[in-house]
Amino acid sequence: MNLAIDPEARRMPAKVAACRFDALESQAIFKVMLDTTSRPGLILDLPRRIVDRIPSALAPLVVLADVETRVHVIDTPTFAWSEAVTSATGARPAQLNKADLIAVPADGREHLTSIFTFAHPGSAFSPESGARLMIGVNDIRSHGTSDSAGVELVIRGPGVEGERGLCIDGLTEADVNAWRTTNSRFPAGIDVWLTTEAGRIVAIPRSSRLDVVATWPTQERK
């Protein structure tokens, strides 16, 4: 037993505590999630005090996770967040294709295409069993510029008046194609929140229609 000297184990209690939100923190995060889901592509900010203490992609997951939910949290190279999240929330860890809630922190972002492919979309009889994905990306902007990276999307559908542009540094066209394939059997589908480490957040629920209008190479991870 070398747990006592494992530096990660020592950090665990503080990280578990960081994953516990009080009633007002939970409400504030949920409200941002509700507002972004109601207006796909609209960029809002997560509460500062939350993104200061945990990877921003975990915040929307922790708010919804409890003993009733199965979660799949990707660990980062520096910390086993999965354990911290399940200890704090009581949620059960699950395989990717069985999870209700999936979080991919920005610095744990690999194999994103397969995550979009294998996340569970539910069925027409129970759309509510479709997975929710929270993904950390490098940057989110409302439109592309000359120094952009990643993909530029156009979003149409409920919550969007006409169309809305969105530029995501951290997604590839292959990711978006996998995502669109998983969402091709609406009302089955997955709902996605993208976050940045600065705490910006945007939602793209399954009701949104996505088109890739430009692509750039994704920037190196910082």
Binding site: A23, Q27, F30, V63
Partner: peptide, 27 residues
């Protein structure tokens, strides 16, 4: 705050988000 315990709120919140993501579906 808001009378309900946090556990209940979480479940209602999950249902609300699905409802918004699938407009018109009775969650």
């Amino acid at each position: 705050f808001g009378l309900l315990d946090e556990y209940s709120k979480r479940e209602i919140r999950r249902a609300i988000l699905t409802a918004v993501a699938v407009p018109g579906y009775q969650v």
